[in-house]
Simulated scan of single mutants.
Amino acid sequence: MRCPYCAGEDTQVKDSRPTEDNTAIRRRRVCNTCAGRFTTFERVQLRELFVVKRSGRRVPFDREKLARSVETAVRKRPVEPERIERMISGIVRQLESSGESDVTAETIGNHVMEGLKGIDDVAYVRFASVYKNFREAKDFEALLDELSVPHDSRPDDL
């Protein structure tokens, strides 16, 4: 594993343990060149995924990019990091087990919105405003109206 500080290739694992939800192995490493310490995570990958962007461009799926966008939405909200990690792991598992190597950005965005809706309404609105490219206040109003309708009485097309 290359050191993120000095790019040295001589690193050593000092500690390994499973994450709380047992979906990854957390490894503490030390660089033998600069003595820098850093953490890596090892996860199961069922298949290599590619994201098909709205432009048609196809790029490798990046779990960390997904995590960053979710973390931006939940920033300064009272949401436990473990809950977010479970949501992200669940989304990745769904995508990998779908049987498809190509996944649309829209599919990923919909999974994230569904997950955030069950975790934190403010994070859901933040993510939706960027994902759906809100331009006006009425865009927010429509989304907030949807949130205020009890789930059982929503039409099936929502």
Rank of each mutant, 00 (worst) to 15 (best):
R2Y: 13
Y5L: 12
Y5F: 15
A7D: 15
G8S: 05
D10R: 12
Q12H: 11
D15M: 04
S16K: 01
P18K: 10
T19Y: 07
E20M: 05
T23Q: 13
R27F: 07
R29N: 03
C31A: 14
T33W: 05
F38A: 06
F38C: 10
T40Q: 09
E42T: 00
R43S: 07
Q45L: 02
F50V: 10
V51E: 04
K53V: 05
G56T: 00
V59S: 01
K65I: 02
L66K: 04
L66H: 05
A67W: 02
S69G: 15
E71L: 15
T72G: 14
A73F: 03
P81M: 08
R83A: 14
E85W: 10
S89W: 10
Q94C: 14
S97K: 10
S97W: 02
G99I: 11
D102P: 07
V103T: 04
V103K: 07
I108H: 01
I108R: 01
K117W: 09
K117C: 12
V122T: 08
A123Y: 01
A123Q: 00
Y124T: 05
R126C: 04
R126F: 00
R126S: 04
F127M: 10
V130H: 01
V130N: 02
R135S: 06
E136K: 10
K138S: 09
K138R: 05
D139P: 06
F140C: 04
L147K: 02
P150C: 03
P155T: 11
L158K: 09
